[in-house]
């Protein structure tokens, strides 16, 4: 598992291409694609700040802050 980092994913909507990798592989199912096909932290309470979405985002569009 990734080292736990503080913060929650903040998504850069201009860089996100909506591939859905972060949504599929989020261990807590905290992310979802919105109506514009952009990643979105739909369930912030589920997020455990593991940071895997940040590491797997091919667009460098996710940052834990």
């Amino acid at each position: 598992m990734a080292k736990k980092k503080k913060g929650k994913p903040v998504i850069n909507r201009e860089w996100c291409k909506g591939c859905g990798i972060c949504v599929e592989f989020c261990p807590e199912d905290a992310l979802a694609l919105d109506e514009m096909e952009k990643s979105n932290l739909a369930y912030p309470d589920k997020c455990n700040s593991c940071g895997m979405c940040e590491l797997r985002c091919p667009d460098l569009a996710i940052e834990l802050r």
């Binding site: 591939c19 590491l55 985002c57 091919p58």
Partner: peptide, 26 residues
Amino acid sequence: AVKDYIRERFFPHLWCPGCGHGIVMG
């Protein structure tokens, strides 16, 4: 931070949605 290592003016990059190369770059 990651952004200190990239040339932000070229982002969003040209790779297709879901292309693995961006993950390798990260």
